[in-house]
Write a protein that binds this DNA or RNA. Structure first.
Length: 343
RNA sequence: CCGCGCUUAGCUCAGCCUGGCAGAGCAGCCGACUGUAGAUCGGCUUGUCCCCCGUUCAAUUCGGGGAGUGCGGACCA
C-alpha cells in the first residue's frame, strides 16, 4: 500500500487532525495509535463508528492499542461502581472485539490494555503527582469539561481524570491519540503538559460525534437516542422509525450519519451496495454504491425519509447482528456487568 | 470536633411557616396532522414525600432521634 493510500485510510471520516503534517511524517514508519474506552454504560452505535475505524488503522499498518480505562470509569463521578469494573471491562472487551470483527478486521491484531495494569505503577503515580503539582484546577476542569461529568461540587477524581489520560498516552507509548472530538480538550492539555515532563506530545485524531436519533447530541442517558449493540431487531426497527429525520435535511440527522460513518464503510469493505426497496408508487428500488449519491438524493428530496429509514434499519440490524450473537452465547457478560438491567 | 442547609414523579424542583385527598416544568406514553420523525394541538400515566419514634381525629408539613449528601467554621504544636 502506498503512502498516500495509508494516509487517506487513517484520515478519512475524521473531524480533526492535530496536525496533518505531524501525522504525515509519522507514516515514515508504523506508528502506534491508541483509543481509550471507560467501561461505564452499555456500548452503542456511536462507539461502533469509532471502533469501525480501527479497521482502517489496521489496514494502514498501524499498531492499534485499546485501553480499557477502568479507573477512569470510576473516577468520573463513579459512573461505574468499583466492584463492577472487572465485569464491565470484560463486557467492553468482548463488545469491542465483536465490533472490530463486524467491521471486517481481525480482533487479534488489537492489543487490549486494562488501565489498572499500568496506572498504579510507582513511575506512573509519581508522574501523576508531579503533573498535579503544576496544573491548575481551572486548567484541568476546562480540559475535561466535555468528557467528565460536571457538577457544582466536582470530586478530585474528575479533576485528576485529564491528567491520567494524558499520562496514558505516554505509558502506552502511543504516537497518536484517537478519540471522539469531545476528547479534544483533554488531548490539547496532553500536548501542552507531556513535553514539560519529558514525553512527546501526541498527534491527535478526532472522530466526529454523531447525532442522536432523537435529534441533537447522542445521549447515553436517553434510551431512544442511540441503538445499543445488543438491541434486538425489533428495537432497532422501532428506534430508527422514531428517529428525527426531516425530509431533505442533513443537519442533526442521525440516520444519515450512521449510514455515512458506519454502514457505508462496512459495505465498502465488503464491496456490497446499499439497496433501498421502495414501492413502485414512489419510484421503485434504488441502489447506491456510495454515501455521497444517497445524500444527494435525500437532499433533493428524491429519497423520502420513510424509505430511507426502512432500509437503514435493516442494514444497521445486520451490522450489529454478529455482536448480538456473541452475547447471546455468553449472557453472563451482560448480567454481571449490568445487574440492575439484566438480572 | 462544632454549626448550618438539603433529601418530594425518570430529571430539575415548588409545597411545609399557618397539619385536612401530593403539585409544576421537562421527559415518557396515546391520539390528530403529515407517505417518516420532529414541531404544533388534544389527552394520559408516574410517588416508600429518606428512615424510625412521638404529638394529633388527621403528619410530606409540627417535635425528637437517625441516615445520606453538601457547605461553612474551628483546630493548625
Amino acid at each position: 500500500m502506498d503512502r498516500e493510500e495509508r494516509y487517506r485510510l487513517v484520515a478519512r471520516n475524521t473531524a480533526e487532525i492535530v496536525t496533518e503534517e505531524e501525522l504525515d511524517s509519522l507514516l515514515d514508519r508504523d506508528p502506534t495509535i491508541y483509543i481509550g474506552y471507560a467501561p461505564t454504560g452499555e456500548m452503542h452505535i456511536g462507539h461502533f463508528t469509532t471502533i469501525r475505524k480501527l479497521a482502517d488503522f489496521l489496514q494502514a499498518g498501524l499498531d492499534v492499542k485499546v485501553l480499557i480505562a477502568d479507573l477512569h470509569a470510576h473516577l468520573d463521578d463513579e459512573k461505574s461502581p468499583f466492584d463492577l469494573l472487572d465485569a464491565r471491562s470484560a463486557y467492553y472487551r468482548e463488545a469491542i472485539e465483536g465490533m472490530v470483527a463486524a467491521a471486517g478486521a481481525d480482533p487479534k491484531q488489537v492489543e487490549f490494555v486494562p488501565g489498572r495494569e499500568f496506572e498504579l505503577s510507582s513511575e506512573y503515580s509519581l508522574d501523576l503527582l508531579r503533573m498535579a503539582a503544576d496544573t491548575t484546577v481551572a486548567r484541568t476542569r476546562r480540559a475535561g469539561s466535555e468528557v467528565v461529568r460536571q457538577s457544582e461540587n466536582p470530586t478530585l477524581g474528575g479533576l485528576l481524570y485529564p491528567l491520567l489520560q494524558s499520562l496514558d498516552v505516554a505509558a502506552l507509548e502511543a504516537d497518536i491519540a484517537y478519540g471522539g472530538i469531545d476528547q479534544r480538550g483533554i488531548y490539547m492539555l496532553s500536548r501542552e503538559v507531556l513535553p514539560e515532563h519529558g514525553y512527546d506530545a501526541p498527534v491527535c485524531l478526532f472522530a466526529p460525534l454523531l447525532s442522536g436519533l432523537t435529534g441533537g447530541k447522542m445521549s447515553a442517558s436517553e434510551a431512544g437516542s442511540s441503538i445499543t449493540i445488543t438491541d434486538d431487531s425489533e428495537a432497532v426497527k422501532q428506534k430508527v422509525a422514531d428517529a428525527y429525520c426531516p425530509q431533505g435535511e442533513v443537519e442533526d440527522n442521525g440516520v444519515l450519519e450512521y449510514l455515512e460513518y458506519l454502514i457505508f464503510p462496512i459495505l465498502d469493505e465488503r464491496k456490497d451496495p446499499f439497496v433501498i426497496e421502495r414501492p413502485e408508487e414512489y419510484g421503485g428500488n434504488v441502489t447506491y454504491e456510495g454515501y455521497a449519491a444517497l445524500e444527494a438524493d435525500f437532499v433533493s428530496k428524491g429519497l423520502h425519509p420513510q424509505d430511507l429509514k426502512t432500509a437503514a434499519a435493516t442494514y444497521i440490524d445486520e451490522a450489529i447482528a454478529p455482536i448480538r450473537d456473541r452475547f447471546a452465547d455468553r449472557p453472563n457478560l451482560l448480567i454481571e456487568a449490568y445487574p440492575e438491567t439484566y438480572d
